[in-house]
Simulated scan of single mutants.
Amino acid sequence: SSFARIQADADTLTLAGTIDSSTNSSTSVVLQGASAITVTGQVTGSGGLISGSANVGPGSIRTVSNDTNNFTGRAQASGGVLAFTSVANAGTASALGAGTVTPTIGLASGTSNATLSYIGTDPLGHSTTRDINLGSGTLGDHTATIEANGTGPLGLGPVSSTTTGTKTLVLTGTNTGGNSIGAITPGTATAVSVTKDGAGTWILTGANTYAGNTTVNNGTLALADNAQLKFVLGATSGVNNSLSGAGTVSLEGDFVIDTAAADSLPSGSWTLENVTTLP
Rank of each mutant, 00 (worst) to 15 (best):
V30I: 14
G73K: 02
T248R: 06
Q32R: 09
K196S: 06
T248E: 00
W270F: 11
G52H: 06
S264C: 00
T271G: 02
T63W: 06
G125F: 11
Y118P: 07
G125T: 12
N240I: 01
P153D: 13
A95Y: 14
P123Y: 07
S26E: 08
T259G: 07
V216P: 12
V159I: 15
A114W: 05
G206L: 11
L229P: 02
G91F: 13
E273Y: 02
A88D: 15
G59K: 03
G268W: 04
I203M: 04
G137R: 08
P123S: 15
G182W: 14
F84L: 09
T176G: 01
T271P: 00
T23K: 09
N70K: 13
L265S: 08
A199T: 11
T188M: 04
T172S: 15
E252K: 10
A207D: 14
T163Q: 15
N175E: 07
F255R: 03
L116M: 12
R5S: 12
D254F: 13
L272N: 06
T162D: 13
T143Q: 15
Q76E: 14
I61H: 07
A211E: 05
T27Q: 01
S269D: 10
D11L: 05
A75D: 12
V101Q: 04
T151I: 13
N149Y: 08
L49V: 15
G268N: 06
I61K: 09
L82W: 09
A4L: 12
S109F: 03
P279Y: 04
G187E: 08
T209H: 11
